[in-house]
Design a binder for these strands. Sequence first.
DNA 1: TTTCTTATGGTTTATTTGACCACAAGTATA
DNA 2: TATACTTGTGGTCAAATAAACCATAAGAAA
Lengths: 221, 221
Amino acid sequence: MNSITIDCVIFGFDKGMLEVLLVQHGEGIRKGEWGLPGGWIREEESIDNAAHRLLADLTGLDDIYLEQLKAFGEPDRFPLGRVITIGYFALIKREDYNVRAGFTASDAKWYKISEIPKLIYDHNKILDYSLEHLRNRVRQAPVGFNLLPEKFTLFELMKLYEEILGIEMDKSNFRRKILKMKLLVQLDEKQKDVSHRAAKLYEFDQKIYEKLTKKGFNFEF
Amino acid sequence: MNSITIDCVIFGFDKGMLEVLLVQHGEGIRKGEWGLPGGWIREEESIDNAAHRLLADLTGLDDIYLEQLKAFGEPDRFPLGRVITIGYFALIKREDYNVRAGFTASDAKWYKISEIPKLIYDHNKILDYSLEHLRNRVRQAPVGFNLLPEKFTLFELMKLYEEILGIEMDKSNFRRKILKMKLLVQLDEKQKDVSHRAAKLYEFDQKIYEKLTKKGFNFEF
DNA sequence: TTTCTTATGGTTTATTTGACCACAAGTATA
DNA sequence: TATACTTGTGGTCAAATAAACCATAAGAAA
């Protein structure tokens, strides 16, 4: 018999920086230490439902981008017995979210990916794997949109790609390439409260994305 | 408490057809029915090791391409209690493999993907997911090589892609594109026993592949 | 020798890319 | 009001790539 948990890697994007949501344990021998938000799977629920339930408890959000990442099952990963964990991968829009501590957590906080502390168990390993996964994923499907607000400028989108992939891009070429895909819908709105010429706002078109996905496409820059 | 199993989807390629290895259960209430080869994870082994162990038992092969696919955990997927299964995805070279029945299986057999019967539990669902995964994977990394013999012709490689992706390709363009990647090493050998002009044989260069993977590349046709 | 099949290596044209420029539009500062 | 500064936006041009297609070489079989 084995036990099974879920651990969620929740990415956010704020002020041009990629961030991860971590929780501080409020009970048990690991009290005070930071780790990924997670919990036990219940007997009667599917693992996807468990992930959604845990995430809703932790963030107050449902209906967010969530995908299964990988199961981690080294026999010694958990000190008190054999526990296999299923990692989940979530991208959320920071504007929609207010940090609050969950039921078993004493604190919850966003960490920049460059400033991640030592985490409990094998959570650093899970996080590293997720980051690698995000970098691959972002090249092959427009999942990055899930990190941005509903309405965004092309420059913000480009900055997101630059941050995740760790590269620099030419704004003119980025513009041409991304618009050619027809994935973006230009709005009649512009940025407000900026100290420079306001950029047009765009939103992401889910339907066109689905069409493109069926034919197989890739999102290279 | 939950139980955890592993189920392997093992693809092979023979005479231009994509195939899957299935086993017939030799015991229990499902005796006589076909399903994916799999088994229980032991307390003291990692899940990757469990997958390798099971696969070695079933096929007599180690050192084959194997990757974790996804965990499947609908609460009712297994009739006798809550069992979560972790799907693994394997590609093997048919030339290296001799079918034999495993320990709990009465028979093991290759099925063409177009002729898959009804399988036990949710195994059809797992298989469908694997096929979809294979189609995606094959576009993003040269995993297809794992299905071919060590030495192969460009035409055979192209046929493999055509079969998996369900498309037709231009042999001339395929040739140019694949050679430009430098992934193939041309050998001083040619096909034998063919009733037409013998094609040059090639092999896959693992080292160059690893270099390319680091920079991120994609394998589109 | 002829015929057939497949391998292999072009050519040509259209499309895409990458690097870079120029100016517009708006804000901030003097 | 004038000037500098920042960011958005559109465009150019040369180089690289892709798609469609053709031509011939190499071998096997009749």
